[in-house]
Amino acid sequence: MYEPNIILFSFLIIAALAVAYTKDLIVATIIFSVYSLVMAIVWQRLSAPDLALTEAIVGTGVTTIIFIVTISKTSRREE
């Protein structure tokens, strides 16, 4: 019963740490979008389908696109 939740939550923690520590910003953006996808699954498992839909569209689509546009206008690597 609880094993999927444990796997999902530990993945979320690892992904969040990876976003913070990755130097390549495009890789960090992709990891962040995968984080949002797993977060959408977690919302669905917590029986909040509206929120899961919003998270899937906004977190995976819009935020990633806007981050990538910003990166392409500035520089790709963090100092």
Binding site: P49, D50, L53, T54, I57, V58, G61, V62, I65
Partner: peptide, 20 residues
Amino acid sequence: VGGGLQGGILLGSSMIIFSI
């Protein structure tokens, strides 16, 4: 499931992907 905000953002992001 769904609503105005989700539908609108999905429409907008399909347009954005088209333009990319």
